[in-house]
């Protein structure tokens, strides 16, 4: 008795399945987008990422180059992780040149316990007055050096720096 019931249910499911999923007409939405630039624009694509490190009793530094290579000095151990230079794209009038300003002074990045590390020696892979290409486009990468103290407190450290473009 139970067997019959079970098979009846199965047959019904098999018969109903295609019909319950049948679709004869489908409507989909998409967006149309366009961006008008006010002469000059800068977009950040990547943050400056020093990645994961271990501190020791010896202080040290971690440097990210504009080619996104990572190197260290002193008692710092580099751990495989996501690291790299800060990456910006600049959009504006083709062939125009502009002033590119990056930090010159140190900034401090902090963890949620207010411990801090210094970020200094900022580098960029473009001159102080770069020129946009024929398509009004230029990529800029920015690196710096992180100072890691003796037994630097554990945590995720973040801070903000400013890059300015100006005609």
């Amino acid at each position: 008795m139970i067997k019959i019931k079970l098979s009846t249910v199965l047959i019904l499911v098999i018969l109903l399945y295609p019909y319950s999923y049948a679709q004869q007409s489908v409507l989909q939405f998409a967006n149309a987008t366009g961006r008008v630039i006010d002469r000059l624009a800068i977009d950040k694509l990547d943050d400056l990422r020093f990645g994961t490190i271990i501190s020791s009793k010896t202080p040290g530094t971690v440097t990210i180059s504009t080619e996104s290579t990572r190197s260290s000095t002193g008692g710092v151990t580099l751990i495989p992780s996501d690291y790299g230079a800060s990456f910006f794209k600049i959009l504006g009038t083709p062939y125009s040149s502009f002033a590119l300003t990056i930090p010159t002074a140190s900034i401090y990045i902090t963890n949620n316990n207010n411990a801090s590390m210094e970020v200094k020696t900022w580098t960029k892979d473009r001159p102080a007055r770069p020129t946009l290409n024929s398509m009004g486009y230029l990529e800029v990468r920015i690196g710096a050096t992180l100072v890691v103290d003796t037994f630097q407190e554990i945590g995720n450290y973040t801070g903000t720096f400013t890059v300015t473009v100006n005609y």
Binding site: V26, L27, V36
Partner: peptide
């Protein structure tokens, strides 16, 4: 200036 956006629809039947 600005990032402009709008929506349109497509149907297949």
């Amino acid at each position: 200036w600005g990032a402009y956006s709008g929506s349109f629809s497509v149907t297949v039947s």
